[in-house]
Amino acid sequence: MGKFAQTFLNWEVMAQYAPKILEGFWVTVQLALAVVIAGIATGLVLALARSFRVKALNLLIVAFVDVLRAVPPLVLIIILYFALPTVGVRMSGFVSTWLALSAILASFAEEIFWAGMLAVPHGQWEAARSTGLSFLQAMRFVVLPQAVRITIPPLTNRTIAITKGTALGAVVAVGEILYQAQSAYSFSYNPSPLTLGAVAYLILFIPVVWFGRWVETRFAWKR
């Protein structure tokens, strides 16, 4: 047990690298927030664009969504970071990770928003309008509340899953938690920084997972 603690919970090593991990923590938070904002906003815009039902545009959107759902995030990040420079397009690890994850989140969000809009039956519109509600009132009080209920739980879960992908940034030298933990590990040749990194992720994501659970029960359909 003592040896185990020496190896995985070495206070000296941890104390030495804790500031680095903390630095990584904030990078992870920034990256995650940037992904969530850009991804969801883009997804919403795409879904709205799709609702105009312009054929060519819709085809383009579906193609975008399909590609981003089929190709692994790490492959995208590596293409952005390692392949694009060979044709003269250079971006930092942070930007390539942000771009890849945002695009992926956008594609999922688009699908979810679009499905949510389709899900509210036409009869709901008709019933609302027949009682004298205006278009906006019907949207605000009848359609949106139902669409949101459908949208929120899957969107939350997707967002959480994709946000955890920020750890992939370590592969392209983004100074986030995992990168810091890994380089500290290779300097010290002791896995304690990895433990510290793991703890940092738990501190960050356990509340997020719980939030997701709460959302799921909060918005659960009564069947």
Binding site: K164, A198, Y201, F205, I206
Partner: peptide, 8 residues
């Protein structure tokens, strides 16, 4: 295990 990024 859902809170851990898989790569971590």
């Amino acid at each position: 295990f859902r809170a851990f990024p898989p790569l971590v």
